[in-house]
Design a protein around this nucleic acid. Structure first.
Lengths: 258, 258
DNA sequence: CTTTTAATTGTCAATATGACAATATATGGA
DNA sequence: TCCATATATTGTCATATTGACAATTAAAAG
């Protein structure tokens, strides 16, 4: 074998690219699906919104870069989020300055500090309703509108067969909280009774034993029977895993064109 | 605005990466799912198998680069394949020579020239059974074993709700051909009667009108009622689209651990 | 014309889903 | 304490879908 660099490439044999990692972080706030965006403080796209992101470092894994950018932008470290890669976007003209390939990630989390101000990065970060973005009411930089659209589609689809919806909730949650996540992200209204059955029998979630539900009456003051708490079941693949499908209720919100 | 390069980056502000496009092409041959691989002719991983791929050119779109590499490797141009991006792979140590981020694609096609020899590229390309790869019986270069595994999983999953299986068939195909694709890729045995019903009622496929089936007896010589021909239905999203799910038949092949 | 082979359709029980009623368990006030 | 109110949770039942498998159709071969 050779030394430091066993089989060096001819330095001129390949075109150099810049590689960035961008993250579309979603959360639910104000009864709507929200995306974390920053306001660009310089050209190009000065004043437009953009996804948190930046150059991948020399010896940094793509995923680590995405997590780092997210942490820098939200101020939250040891992120309480669920992060997954979406795809690479590398159209030759996506950045007017030079050839940049970005690896996009999507993430979901339960909540965010009221004002997730940039923890040192240039501009301020804030949450904007996905509905506004889908309507084209938000000016997004580069191809970030497409990235957000693709991420939302992936999330909506993934929620049908996995416990992803739990990523929008605290570690333990009530069935109602979970149902409201589905209703908000999918833009539909679900039947509470049938949804209860789904959560109970799908194998995707499981009741939170420990300081479970009925009996933990500490300082609650809402009327009605207290709800039990649930968690996402540890991912044991190799299971059927039922889907949520059409639990919609008759007079509910108008479903999007899925 | 400025001229050629409106907002130039500081050349030293970002680490240069090499970006490549790799393609995992699958087809069905010999009653098994097969992947197109080349044999590496140089270090590192001399002698190991690798996915067709190479550097993305200066002004080339990622997808175009993938299609180009595929065409160069198979000798087929104007590819009769279905090509879609899988994900980016960019672990800092995935290539011992330098920092390379690869954008992986997966593709499926109906058939390939008997011996898809490299159309000019270094090594010979040939098809290897995915089963062997999954079993670890094939030495793959870099992280290509993971890429193949991810691609196979994506394909198996996608086939459940889309017409992707038709990508393994000629433009027009019989229901039996289509069923054999599912059986081969999923490693299960499906009930012919129930599968017929699925094809007929799922909305994913549609009967090939034109020179349809019963009546096109030109030079056939197989016994039995002649099969009608079908095609993938033009993608009209916004439809329910039934899933293939468990049409398995009792004594069929052992299903993989899905 | 009969046998053989494969495609296609039909039947029926077991499940799953959608709609909605009934019951359980809290809070708050009379 | 008892009742009205508000949720959570469980049941019921008609309908739709799925799995298993029988029956029918349409060709080739002898």
């Amino acid at each position: 074998m050779v030394g430091e660099v066993p089989y060096p490439y001819d330095p001129g044999a390949f075109p150099p690219f810049a590689v960035t990692a961008d993250v579309a972080l979603f959360t639910i706030g104000n009864n709507a699906l929200q995306a974390l965006l920053i306001e660009r403080g310089r050209e190009p796209f000065l004043g437009a919104r953009a996804l948190p992101g930046g150059f991948v470092r020399e010896d940094e894994d793509l995923r680590d870069a995405a997590a780092r950018e997210l942490a820098e932008e939200t101020g939250l470290h040891a992120g309480p989020w669920y992060l997954e890669q979406l795809a690479a976007y590398g159209s030759p003209d996506r950045d007017p300055r030079m050839r940049v390939v970005t690896v996009a990630f999507w993430a979901v989390c339960a909540s965010l500090p009221a004002s997730p101000r940039g923890g040192g990065d240039a501009a301020a970060a804030n949450l904007l309703p996905v509905e506004d973005i889908e309507r084209g009411a938000v000016r997004l930089a580069f191809d970030h509108a497409r990235i957000v659209a693709d991420a939302v589609e992936r999330i909506r689809s993934s929620m049908e067969h996995t416990a992803l919806a739990a990523g929008f909730c605290p570690p333990e949650f009530t069935i109602r909280q979970l149902r409201e996540v589905y209703e908000t992200v999918w833009g539909v209204s679900l039947d509470p009774g049938n949804f209860q059955r789904y959560v109970r029998e799908s194998g995707v979630f499981e009741p939170s034993l420990a300081l479970s539900a009925p009996g933990r009456d500490d300082t609650r003051s809402e009327p009605g029977r207290p709800a039990s708490l649930w968690t996402a079941r540890r991912t044991e693949s190799g299971r059927p895993a039922k889907a949520v499908r059409r639990l919609a209720r008759p007079g509910g919100k108008q479903a999007r064109n899925r």
